[in-house]
Amino acid sequence: MSLSIPGFDYQRISADDGVALNAAVGGEGSPIVLLHGFPQTHLMWRHVAADLAADHTVIVPDLRGYGASDKPAEAGGETYAKRTMAADIVGLAAGLGHERFALAGHDRGALVAVRAGLDHPESVSHLAILDVVPTLDMWEVLHGVDAAVAFHLYLMAQPPGLPERMIAASADAFFGCFLDAWTKDPEAIPGPVREEYLRASREAVVSIVADYRASAGIDVEHDRADRANGNRLRMPVTVVQQDWGAALGYDAAAVWRAWAPDLDHRLTDAGHFMAEEDPAMVVKALRDLLAR
């Protein structure tokens, strides 16, 4: 049996295309939705969600293709486009009675959150992003040997077949290497939680690759169209990230400000899995955002 967030109720809510998302729901008050990253599940928010539930309705789903949510077969780029996954989240919130909500995302979930903010500004009141840059900018800032840090992006961008077989052949080693390399505090992801992440990822190789493949294709097309049309994030936005700008030679705050005029950009010394390594810092950033 998979682990759960104590005190939260679990529901399955179907999107318009029939894909059902597994979601933990807890607390009362204004709603906030928390979206997980790779190679994790909704469980990465367990500390933050428990704190926020003191005065908010907190909704913590597994993204389509991850955890206990449905994993539809890839049928063209739209199946795992961030536009499709963002529509899942808006539909999930509406199914729980929330037409407008705050939204926070980490890693892959952050890319879904950005797309939700761009496509559904009437639904997203506040937006928090943890440790990514927008999809289009991500590809633009990766270059030369520095791009080796993101080798998995290039592997999973390949056509269906080879990347799925390669990863499935050594799934625990593949997903585990990110859990090891991207954290500065290994104790932040205790053994049972790590095993849950590995189990869930091992069972979702095909859909995880499809998610990443979309980010090298249709997601870039959608971002380019928004950039050309001047579509930006209209809500207050907080970005918390490691100093990737210094590491890769770009101005991270400027990249985000081009998309989000009302921006609070923060750097952290925590590792990539900051919601588990420094949940108090993440909670403070979210509460500061919600007060804007």
Rank of each mutant, 00 (worst) to 15 (best):
I218V: 14
E276Y: 02
R266E: 14
V206T: 12
L21Q: 08
L263W: 15
V255I: 15
A157D: 05
D17R: 06
D278T: 11
P134N: 10
F151R: 05
E164Y: 05
I32W: 14
D9K: 10
E203T: 03
S170C: 07
R12Q: 13
H42V: 04
H265F: 15
D107F: 04
L34V: 10
A157N: 03
W256Q: 11
L290I: 10
M281H: 07
A75E: 11
W139Y: 04
D131H: 05
G37F: 02
V239A: 12
A246I: 00
M1Y: 14
V124Q: 07
D251E: 08
F175H: 03
R257Y: 06
S69P: 05
V145N: 09
E196D: 15
Q40I: 09
L155Y: 03
D185P: 00
P163S: 02
V25R: 08
L267Y: 13
A93Q: 07
V220N: 00
L248H: 07
P6Q: 09
A260S: 15
A204P: 01
S170K: 11
V124C: 13
S4L: 11
D180I: 02
V33W: 09
A102I: 12
A53R: 05
A270G: 06
D9R: 14
E195A: 14
R194P: 06
L263H: 14
R100C: 06
R83A: 15
I129V: 15
G191L: 08
G230L: 12
A54Q: 11
R108P: 00
A75Y: 00
L130S: 13
V149Q: 13
W139S: 01
I218M: 02
E28P: 02
P261A: 14
E74Y: 01
A23T: 15
V149G: 15
R194Q: 12
I208Q: 12
G65I: 10
G18N: 12
D185H: 06
H152S: 03
V220A: 00
Q242T: 07
K284N: 12
S4Y: 13
R165P: 00
A254I: 11
L118I: 05
D17T: 08
P121E: 09
H98N: 07
P190R: 02
A20M: 09
A53P: 06
A15C: 11
A225L: 11
P72W: 09
R292M: 08
V220T: 01
Q241L: 07
P279R: 06
D119W: 01
V33C: 15
R12S: 10
V33L: 15
V282Y: 03
V133R: 03
L118K: 05
E28Y: 00
L111G: 13
F101G: 10
R234P: 02
A86S: 12
P121Q: 10
G105L: 09
V19F: 06
D119F: 01
A246M: 02
L267V: 14
L130I: 14
R292T: 10
M138K: 05
G26S: 11
L127Q: 15
K71M: 09
P160N: 00
R64S: 12
L43P: 10
E195M: 07
L96I: 09
I89G: 06
P261L: 13
D262M: 12
T57K: 07
H126C: 09
G105V: 08
A116G: 08
A171D: 00
A285I: 03
W244D: 04
A168W: 01
F174K: 00
L267Q: 14
M281F: 04
L263V: 15
R199P: 01
V114A: 07
S207F: 03
V90R: 13
S30T: 12
H56L: 04
G77A: 06
